[in-house]
Nucleic acid binder design. Structure first.
Lengths: 225, 225
DNA sequence: ACCGATGATGAAGGAATTATGAAGATGTCG
DNA sequence: CGACATCTTCATAATTCCTTCATCATCGGT
């Protein structure tokens, strides 16, 4: 069963949302502050968060920003004002959808269902990368070799995803830096070597004789094809 | 930097899209009508167009049709209707992907990125060199004779690519040195001989009687034509 | 067919590139 | 603030492969 966290400082609103969402078949937890929401999200990993933009102290955007550093949990924003809200949300990365207050509970349920549909729908083209026995799930940021799933840091994941998305293509270190860091950061090329080493340590059965992430001497790296 | 044209008659929607796409590192221009969009596309050549299907006067399909007569710019359609027939029509006319309204801005960004990934992944003109049975793929830095693929070092690959890019033309050793090393390096001419030997060993069915990389006595080498 | 000049070849040394472990820097969490 | 994780940098070891050289084969003009 999908677990939804509803965050609003007005208990009345939160309760209405809870009633409707529970009736729609979801498990619901409510939180009255941004701090509570963050603590809960960290420890219990809800499947979706309904978040009031106008929380006191730590507002919805702060919560979103903090959450986004560690998770890609879907967020639906509740916004009070119509005029400014779109702009604000537009500027802040991270919300998946938004509902303006006063909202109809039925609309909220519909939006929640829509988000889950999107997520559960057949993976987007390119969202799942399969290259031989290696599988990368971009949405869940999870990698696996065969049935064995492995933990990668976000940088390592991006690096591997870039390589595995086009097996056989040779990437220079500069290209890989772009892919994992964005163009703006200037970093020493050799940082890539360190990440490759770490990826190999986690991914390869025998890191000394890589089967997947291969070195192309004088050029860069490629994923085996 | 990639330049994206967003076309929607609702400024609110266009602005949200602009904000998200700019945060994602794209340069964005917005247009409120099909006529503006066509004018802009003609004069400024954006790298991708996000196009509302339900534009007034000249609708998205008209715009697409007109655009397609003169350009192959990627198009992502925004459509309110989920109707399957619209999808078919749009794809027939050359839309590259679809996002249904109301859309999550994050999804839009993801689709845009996916389209660019597809485009950038496609081999560019000149990236594949074909000379008889020999094929060179610069992106993969791999050569093949018929169906047999061959691993070359980067120097060997550059040497062969230089020769094969102009079959029949004779290259002096100095020219070949320039091509593989850059002008600045001073190296003994005869190093080329060694590379030719190695290329032949890997490439030729019978290295003693070369079929592809031919010696021009007293001058240099050429690729057979 | 001869002979000087040019090319082919295999081996060895050395330059350049990559691998690796550890330390420093940075940011995050409790 | 201290513990922890991650990313980057650095020094050094290991590896690749480029160049050179010596020797033998081939070419072309006479």
């Amino acid at each position: 069963m999908k677990h939804i966290l509803v965050v609003d400082d007005e208990p009345r609103i939160a309760e209405i949302a809870r009633d409707y969402l529970e009736r729609a078949g979801f498990k619901v937890t409510t939180a009255g502050s941004g701090a509570d929401a963050l603590a809960f999200a960290r420890s219990r990993r809800p499947d979706l968060i309904v978040l009031d933009l106008g929380l006191p102290h730590v507002d919805g955007l702060d919560v979103t920003r903090t959450l986004r550093r560690q998770s890609s949990v879907p967020i639906i924003m509740l916004t009070a004002r119509v005029d400014e809200s779109d702009k604000l949300i537009g500027l802040e990365l991270g919300a998946d959808d938004y509902v303006t207050k006063p909202f109809s509970p039925k609309e909220l349920v519909a939006r929640v269902r829509a988000v889950f549909r999107r997520i559960d729908a057949a993976p987007e083209r390119g969202d799942i990368i399969r290259a031989g026995e290696v599988t990368l799930d971009k949405r869940r940021m999870q990698a696996s070799v065969g049935a064995q799933s492995i933990d990668l840091t976000s940088t390592e994941f991006e690096l591997l995803a870039t390589l595995a998305s086009q097996p056989g293509r040779v990437f220079t270190r500069a290209q890989l830096l772009d892919a994992i860091r964005g163009v703006e950061v200037e970093s020493f090329d050799r940082a890539i070597d360190a990440h490759v080493k770490n990826v190999r340590r986690k991914l390869e059965p025998d890191p000394r004789n890589p089967r997947y992430v291969l070195t192309v001497h004088g050029v860069g790296y490629k994923f085996a094809d």
